[in-house]
Amino acid sequence: MELKNRVMMSAIGTHESVESEGRKSVIDKLIAYHVARAKGGNGLNTVEVTAVDKASAHFGFLFIAEDKYTNGLKN
């Protein structure tokens, strides 16, 4: 992978996602957050902290342990 610079934003909890059935999903607000960081000069953005197992799901972070929560990450 070639980046335009060495500036990288690591995975953080933005709380810019929407809650659905007690789980968090990607929405336009979260996408806009990362787009703004990229326009500001980040060479690489890492999507925020994401739970991949129901037992490890922390309140307020993305959840992808079930397929129905992954739609926003497919684009």
Rank of each mutant, 00 (worst) to 15 (best):
Glu19Phe: 11
Asn71Pro: 00
Met1Thr: 13
Asp28Leu: 07
Asp67Pro: 11
Asn45Glu: 14
Gly60Lys: 15
Tyr33Ala: 03
Thr70Ile: 07
Thr46His: 06
Asn42Leu: 11
Val35Arg: 04
Arg23Val: 11
Leu73His: 04
Thr50Ile: 00
Phe61Trp: 14
Tyr33Thr: 07
Phe63Asp: 07
Lys54Asn: 12
Gly43Ile: 04
Asn45Trp: 07
Leu62Ile: 03
Asp53Phe: 14
Asn71Ser: 10
Thr70Leu: 01
Val49Trp: 11
Phe61Tyr: 13
Gly41Lys: 02
Asp53Pro: 08
Tyr33Gly: 09
Gly22Lys: 03
Gly60Thr: 07
Ile12Thr: 06
Val26Tyr: 05
Phe63Ser: 15
His34Trp: 04
Met1Pro: 15
Glu21Lys: 14
Ala36Trp: 01
Lys68Phe: 04
Val49Cys: 09
His34Cys: 04
Lys74Gly: 02
Arg37Ile: 01
Val7Lys: 11
Leu44Arg: 03
Lys24Cys: 05
Ser20Asp: 14
Asn5Glu: 09
Ala65Phe: 10
Ile31Gln: 07
Leu62Ala: 11
Lys68Glu: 10
Tyr69Ile: 02
Leu73Pro: 02
Val47Leu: 05
Ala36Asn: 12
Lys29Met: 05
Arg37Ser: 01
Ser20Gly: 00
Ser25Cys: 09
Glu2Leu: 14
Asn42Trp: 07
Asp53Gln: 13
Asn71His: 08
Lys54Trp: 08
Leu44Gly: 08
Gly41Trp: 11
Lys54Arg: 14
Asn75Trp: 05
Leu30Cys: 00
His15Phe: 09
Arg37Val: 07
Asn71Ile: 02
Val47Gln: 04
Lys24Val: 00
Leu44Val: 03
Lys4Ser: 11
Glu21Val: 09
Lys68Ala: 06
Val52Gly: 08
Ser56Pro: 10
Thr14Trp: 00
His15Arg: 12
Ala11Glu: 02
Glu16Thr: 05
Val26Ser: 01
Glu48Ser: 09
Ile27Pro: 02
Leu73Glu: 02
Lys29Leu: 03
His15Ala: 14
Ile31Leu: 15
Lys29Gln: 13
Arg37Trp: 10
Met8Gly: 11
Ile27Asp: 15
Asp53Gly: 14
Asp53Lys: 15
Lys39Arg: 09
Ser10His: 04
Lys4Glu: 13
Asn75Lys: 14
Lys29Trp: 03
Leu73Lys: 01
Asn42Gln: 14
Ala57Cys: 08
Val47Thr: 06
Leu44Lys: 04
Val49Pro: 01
Gly22Asp: 10
Lys54Gly: 07
Thr50Glu: 00
Ser56Arg: 13
His58Gln: 15
Gly40His: 07
Phe63Val: 03
Gly40Phe: 13
Val26Pro: 02
Leu62Thr: 01
Lys68Arg: 15
Arg23Pro: 03
Glu48Pro: 13
Gly43Ala: 00
